Computed example of a mutant assay.
Amino acid sequence: MAIRGILFDKDGTLVDFHKTWHAIGDRLALEAAGGDRGKANDLMELAGYDFEAGRFRGDSVFAAGTNADIVALWYANAPQDEHEARVRHFDAVTAAEGARSAVPLDGVLDALRDLHKRGYKLGVATNDSEGGAKQTIQAIGVAHLFVAAYGYDSVARPKPAPDAIEAFCALTGFAPDEIAMVGDNRHDLEMARAGRAGLAVGVLSGTGTQERLAPLADVVLSSVRDLPAYLAG
């Protein structure tokens, strides 16, 4: 069946992951370390930051996980009530600061406008919070192009589970094989496979590599900016 709806990951797919998130992650790590710079660096590395390369590793906790995952990693011995409070704090900080710092990837906004004009129904499926997703697409000026924005807290199970695809199908009335899932990490493509999406698209604009994405993808593109031409062709 023809593709009618497209779900996009957010960070590394629509916005520049490293330009948007390094400073925010570092701030939260320094907070978790009680102001100790060395310990904060250790926490950043634990969450997936490669200091030698100056970037986050693909499929790492910070690149592909949820705020709850990061809190569990950095505050491993926290009791449940503190864990929940920390997650709420992380959600609030990352939603506000992620939107304020969001840097759209080159050519992506034009591509989204093109796809919307062609009649595709567009959605966001991210392991950031729903608030973070909505605030970011509002901040970069494309919220009106999307019919849905799903965060890890919007569904019972976040990526790589298929819940966001199932929710998008329920909203649009499309069958799973009419949906394309686009993302820069294996979690995105694993969700596409689990949800029986009609098209799994890997993009190299974030933290993922050709070698890691290709085994799960139907196609690997350099960026979302190449998607309109691919779908047209």
Rank of each mutant, 00 (worst) to 15 (best):
A2T: 13
G5Y: 01
I6L: 00
I6R: 07
F8D: 01
D11W: 06
L14Y: 04
V15T: 15
D16G: 05
H18W: 10
K19L: 12
K19H: 15
W21R: 01
G25E: 06
D26R: 13
L28M: 14
A29K: 06
A29T: 09
A29E: 07
E31Q: 12
E31K: 13
A32W: 00
A33R: 09
G35Y: 09
R37K: 13
R37S: 11
G38K: 14
G38F: 10
A40D: 08
A40H: 05
D42P: 04
L43A: 05
L46W: 09
A47K: 01
A47R: 03
G48S: 01
F51M: 11
A53E: 15
D59A: 05
D59W: 01
A64S: 15
G65C: 11
G65N: 08
D69C: 10
I70K: 01
A72F: 00
A72D: 14
P79N: 09
D81I: 00
F90E: 10
A95S: 14
A95V: 04
A99T: 05
R100T: 11
P104Y: 04
V108D: 03
L112C: 08
R113S: 12
L115E: 03
R118H: 13
G119T: 09
K121S: 13
L122Q: 10
V124K: 06
N127P: 13
G132Q: 06
A133E: 08
Q135R: 15
T136R: 02
A139K: 10
L145P: 07
V147S: 14
A148M: 05
A149G: 15
Y150A: 07
Y152P: 00
D153I: 10
S154F: 03
S154V: 05
P160N: 02
P160F: 13
A161M: 13
A161L: 01
D163A: 09
A167P: 04
A167V: 02
F174Y: 15
F174Q: 04
A175R: 11
I179L: 03
A180T: 11
G183Q: 06
N185C: 10
R186A: 08
M191T: 04
A194H: 06
R196K: 14
G198Y: 03
A200H: 06
L204F: 09
S205T: 06
S205I: 03
G206N: 07
T207R: 06
L216C: 08
A217P: 04
L221F: 10
L221Y: 03
L221S: 06
L221H: 05
S222I: 00
S223G: 05
V224L: 00
V224N: 04
V224H: 01
D226S: 05
L227K: 02
A229N: 12
L231K: 07
